[in-house]
Nucleic acid binder design. Structure first.
Lengths: 322, 322
DNA sequence: ACAAGTAATGATACCGGTAACTTTCATTTA
DNA sequence: TAAATGAAAGTTACCGGTATCATTACTTGT
């Protein structure tokens, strides 16, 4: 017990004793066993992070933010990815719970039909914070962005400032919160401007480049009178695919067709042309989500919040600006 | 004990008993406690990953590879970043050891003078695998790429195929393995072609965009006769900075000055002009390193290997091709 | 010099599992 | 029917810490 006290800088240990203990520990090459410690104190100082993929630059940046705050608070993170696969998401969360992480940060790929998975978990009072991709209908902390509003605004820009009227939207899976919201933003902007939305203009795709490429090819094969003048994509990865497809069709951005994305990947400004997009404060979102989770773990926060960290539009040339 | 056997699908449990146990477990909401399990079996099924930063696309890709193999083998990863800071690297590794991760994958920022930190760790037989950035002088498994050779080849290309003679190199910190090797490759190519290397052409910088920008500004301010005709950068991030600096100076790539990078970031092909670079098989390197570490942990591998996974050159337009 | 109070140290139990060994139970064999 | 045998279930100790309570060692005041 005295050894334990000495190593943890607790009170009531004689200076000389402490010195002797520390010396001996060093000599023996003693390394504290955090596993045993976790078992008794019932806390692992570890948080789980579940993300769909690590491909676009949003998640790496967010994770840097998460890890930064975790590090400051002596926590570490177990990083897992679901590969956009619902079953795998459940599986890794079970594993995280078994490892008794003190809380979990999730960017979920689950949908309404899997709601019970999380309500069960929440019933046990497990600290959970959703970031970026949340799940409507859950009484839980969310840290997300103003997807719908900002999507509406960027489409407003295309209509108001560039006078485009035929605007297509390359969507993500509709069941996922973020792609649904962004689509809603697109639709509401179009409607407010009394612009008709052709069914063919909303192409269901995915969050990756390949999907963006395929979706764009579909759009470009529409008959002349239906051909969109501008494309808004659910994220930058899809926009990169769109860009390739547009170039492959020997069309020019923004002269023949304008393009705007969503994320603000690091290289957007170096693209040809530089991509107009929505800047998501990934690092900030990660920090914030991490801080909230740690506050909950430390019993410093009990309220449930739905935090929206505002994104902003970054005008570059792909929309037709400058 | 019977309960333990039943839950772990061990033999010698009556079918009826097992059924009853599983039902009761479910009813109670029992979740296995992996912390306690780890304490007894002395294995956590967790590996630590230490990287400098998550910014460029190499590490996210590598981590996807690492996590993929880990997942298949029922391991999870604790991800930590050192922020390119040696003390922090040591600190997080101490924490990982305390948490008794079964092994550690490292892309180190430590240099020769800190060698003892790792030799001490290796003396305790802790499973360690270095990937990408290794540390010369350590008897340990490395998974890296043929930095020197491929750097030499890309400079060969600039000289042989484009007839550039004044070629500058934007370097990373010289004490780090990869930037040292890449520089060596540059130097050896220049020497082999009997080209003189002006001291001003080797600019010490860093792995990030800002450093690349500043270094390039320095190069562009050289007098006419010293002005490089081409720039080779230690990685793509630095190349992005270089690109910006070149554009800011109203120069054209590759007409006024050619540029080649190293990494093959995802958006390279969409840049203006598309960036010629070295493609590093990040995902593969991550998978391989992870597999080796897990083999060591499982006692399936005892030899120490220095594995070089070959990178290859991707010719695009920034070097002057096409 | 001795009681009282405080600081330092020590003993025990427990966290939730599993290994190793023992006991109980059921079935087979002579 | 009793002994032999193997399957199923149970006991105990331990992994390496820490909380709690008990003990011992020093101070301090009168």
């Amino acid at each position: 017990m005295t050894v334990s006290r000495a190593l943890n800088n607790r009170a009531n240990v004689d200076k000389k004793t402490k010195k002797k203990i520390l010396e001996t520990a060093k000599m023996m090459g003693y390394k504290p066993n955090h596993v045993a410690r976790s078992l008794t104190i019932n806390k692992t100082y570890t948080i789980g992070v579940v993300i769909p993929k690590l491909t676009n630059s949003f998640f790496p940046d967010a994770i840097q933010g998460i890890e930064e705050v975790a590090f400051e608070n002596d926590f570490q993170i177990i990083l897992t990815h679901s590969s956009e696969n619902a079953d795998r998401e459940k599986q890794v969360i079970e594993a995280l719970v078994s490892k008794r992480v003190d809380g979990i940060l999730i960017s979920t790929v689950l949908t309404k039909k899997d709601l019970s998975f999380y309500t069960d978990l929440l019933d046990t009072n497990y600290p959970l914070v959703f970031f970026d991709r949340w799940l409507p209908g859950l009484e839980v902390n969310n840290v997300r962005t103003n997807d719908k509003e900002i999507a509406r605004k960027i489409v407003d820009h295309l209509i108001d400032d560039h006078k485009y009227r035929k605007i297509a939207y390359i969507a993500g899976p509709d069941k996922l919160s973020i792609s649904h919201e962004r689509k809603e933003g697109y639709i509401s902007s179009m409607k407010e401007h009394n612009l008709e939305i052709d069914d063919d203009w909303i192409v269901s795709a995915n969050f990756d480049e390949e999907a963006g490429y395929e979706a764009t090819k579909k759009l470009l094969s529409l008959p002349e009178n239906k051909m969109p003048r501008a494309i808004f994509t659910v994220n930058d990865s899809a926009a990169f695919g769109a860009m390739e497809a547009i170039f492959d069709a020997n069309l020019k951005i923004p002269d023949d067709i304008a393009l705007v994305g969503f994320t603000d990947d690091k290289q957007d400004k170096l693209l040809n042309p530089p991509l107009t997009t929505v800047h998501q404060p990934a690092f900030e979102m990660g920090k914030r989500a991490s801080q909230i989770l740690i506050d909950i773990i430390n019993g410093k926060s009990t309220t449930i919040e739905d935090i929206k960290i505002k994104s902003n539009i970054v005008l570059r040339r792909s929309c037709g600006c400058k």
